[in-house]
Design a protein around this nucleic acid. Structure first.
Lengths: 200, 200
DNA sequence: CACCCAATCTGGACAATGACAAGACTCACC
DNA sequence: GGTGAGTCTTGTCATTGTCCAGATTGGGTG
């Protein structure tokens, strides 16, 4: 219980590493991420993380998986504030998608544009698929057909996903200057319009 | 002229480093890119690149700039095969955008999703802006108004760009499985449909 | 033509990093 | 109280980026 001195066993090192790992990721970006820096921040030896995550890719995989779970939360949060119409729910998911990218750009890049995490990790694969299923369900509700059996609906999935993803990625790389200069409300309306375009 | 023995001065080291740099980038990705490996491939000392590019970010900036120039070529190539209608020309740019990403995924990521290149490098900034101007001109031709003075047209720019970028990024990360299983012609038609959606 | 200077390139050094191996420590369980 | 599995440390090695001093070269200048 004594938090002052450092006991040999940390007690909850895995969770502490995840927390510090996300901080380092946010501060330095994926490309400058350092496992030793994470260990130092937690106050533990440089090779302690290996026992919980194997290697750097292991920790990054766990961070990406956790990211996908919060990604899903971000989309659902927007839906909670939206109307009940299927189209509004789908557009809301898109806004939540963009919210997430803008609030955690480095994590978003880790999840979608990095080769460092091990995609085949069960935890990561499952979390990513859950996010994809959410999108598919949004479209299924809108079209009344499962995208898995209806190509036209799957086209809607691709369209909505690509538009949201493009907006998110270009936004966090600072390339959408028109968007930056907009007030909050204006940007919201603009993004809704973009998502509406994608859905024909 | 003798290519056999290694003279002390390489002769065209800068160009050779760019060529080898792109190879290493394509083979290893941005995150595993190594300056020393590039030097070794050219057969030159590990610190030789410094005199031409300063540091690793300098070489990557030059590669990104060259990438943006070829990116533009890829879009124009598609337009050369397209009809003369403004909408067809804009859609063709989108296809060229995606062509480029699919044929050089690591370079595309370097250009759009990496923090390693120095964005403020004049050569890189200019090359990136030229690509952006191309898109703006496509939309200006379509709408008969300059996006810089007409917000509705700028919305078309953002829409077309985001859709193409989302499709490109998701495609190279292997997340668009429906697209992977399509035959060449089918995929073409599908992508045209996606770009058409973005333009309302 | 000889010389000199600036540009080019080499080799060594250093700190940071990821990975690995061997050992110290702690706790739960018997 | 002892034992073994799990946890963490320390030390080591190869790789990397960057810096620095020095060797080499070629072009321009006297």
């Amino acid at each position: 219980m004594a938090e002052d001195r450092k006991p040999y066993h940390h007690g909850d090192l895995r969770a502490a590493l995840l927390r510090a790992g996300e901080e380092v990721l946010a501060e330095s970006g994926v490309e400058a991420f350092s496992l030793r820096r994470v260990a130092k921040r937690v106050g533990v030896s440089h090779s302690a993380p290996a026992h919980h995550f194997g290697d750097a890719a292991g920790l990054l995989s766990a961070l990406a998986a956790e990211g996908f779970r919060r990604f899903l939360v971000s989309m659902r949060a927007r839906q909670a504030d939206a109307g009940g119409a299927p189209i509004d729910l789908l557009v809301a998911s898109g806004l939540g998608y963009i919210d997430f990218a803008r609030s955690r750009p480095a994590l978003f890049r880790l999840m979608f544009a990095s080769e460092r995490p091990k995609e085949e990790t069960p935890e990561l694969a499952e979390a990513g698929e859950a996010a994809f299923r959410h999108l598919v369900e949004d479209v299924a509700r809108l079209r009344g057909r499962s995208p898995f059996s209806d190509p036209a609906s799957m086209a809607d999935v691709v369209a909505a996903w690509s538009m949201a993803h493009g907006l998110a990625e270009l936004s966090i790389s600072g390339r959408l200057k028109p968007l930056q200069s907009m007030a909050e409300e204006e940007r919201e309306a603009f993004l809704r319009g973009m998502m509406a375009r994608a859905l024909g």
